[in-house]
Design a protein around this nucleic acid. Sequence first.
DNA 1: TCTGGGGTCCTAGGACCC
DNA 2: TCTGGGGTCCTAGGACCC
Length: 421
Amino acid sequence: MTVFALIDGNSFYCSCERVFDPTLAKRPVIVLSNGDGCAVARTPEAKALGIRMGQPWFQMRDLCRTHKVAVLSSNYALYGDMSARMNEVYRLFSPAIEVYSIDESFLDLSGLGGTDLVTHARELRATVRQWTGIPTCVGVGPTKTLAKLANWVAKHDPERGGVCDFRDEAARLPVMAKIPVTEVWGMGSASVGKLEALGCRTAADLARLDPALARRLLTVVGERIVWELRGTSCLPLEEVAPQRKGCAVTRNFAGRVEDLPTLQEAVAAHTARLAEKLRHHGLATDALTVFFHTSTHDQGPQHAASRTVTLPEATNDTLALIRAARAAVAAIWRPGHRYSKAGVMTMSLIRAEDAAPPLFDGLDRERSARLMGALDAVNARWGRGTLLPASTGLKRPWATRFEHRSPRYTTRLDELPRARA
DNA sequence: TCTGGGGTCCTAGGACCC
DNA sequence: TCTGGGGTCCTAGGACCC
């Protein structure tokens, strides 16, 4: 029988911060989203104060001050590095793993013969805790969806010691009868609304739903979930990440942008970052979509603009992409609006080495490769944004700030933690 | 009067995820 | 004043082809 485990870090970003700052232990801690917009991670102590996932920072500033909540900007360099360390540990406990997100991985535990899998899972947790400092929970089940649900139980039922085993149907069904259907992986608010009308309220109810009805109501995605909840695996372990399909860089502005030059600078900066990401993945693109819009939270005229431009040849050259993006912005900009957000994205990715040169007037590829190589080397050595095209602007009034960022303890030499003895 | 029938490809929009 | 960012998959409908 196939056996999956899902392991994830508890309050992952907060736990990463606690590893390097022991004064955060037992205190409520939250981590804010990019640009300090809203809460994206909370410790149990912070949840107990009523801080919700996605809650805007300005709404909880006073509460955080009153209760001495530790508030941190997100530090993805740190979290990504801790995530990689955890996955190294997982590989010692499973022949095959799927890195599902920055803090979750599926493990294939099928081939472990006579091993007691619950004991195995406990040892996994203990090793991860000891070697990385991150507390985790583990769910075990015959399908990914059941492993994920078991993980939810492991997190919410302190009696279980961080591990929940859903392999046995008779044992799991009474537990599933107490789990709201909203907690099933893949059940968002739209689906839950439709199920509510049928009186389908728990994970056990959903497992009992007629698969044909699930398909009519919730498409093939819903039908698969029903089979998975019954123990029939429809979602295989994906060990190798498929080639990505799109790439985007989008940001809310710190304030509002009303003039074309500033908007162009912001989009140029996003495009520079997009080009970096493309080069990092060995990809190139021949089409960019640029967009910007006003905020629905604002009074005044609303405008949402977007334009896709095709390039004469696929490239990941920062300067070539910025030229195209700036022209697109100029073509669709309208005066008299207070723009709140802009972004650049592409859904047209090819491997950089497959990019065919055009018949006439192509880029000087050798020169571009040398220049981009130097740019990336400087930014890798001295930190992102050390060297940037002038078109991305110097003052950057639109740029979001990180007022609460912790040091990048594990990825920057000048920010290493200090120990005193 | 009748106005085929399948393919494929692309896009937009909805839904969901972390 | 301040409300994240970046992905994936599915479906329906239109364009186009033979």
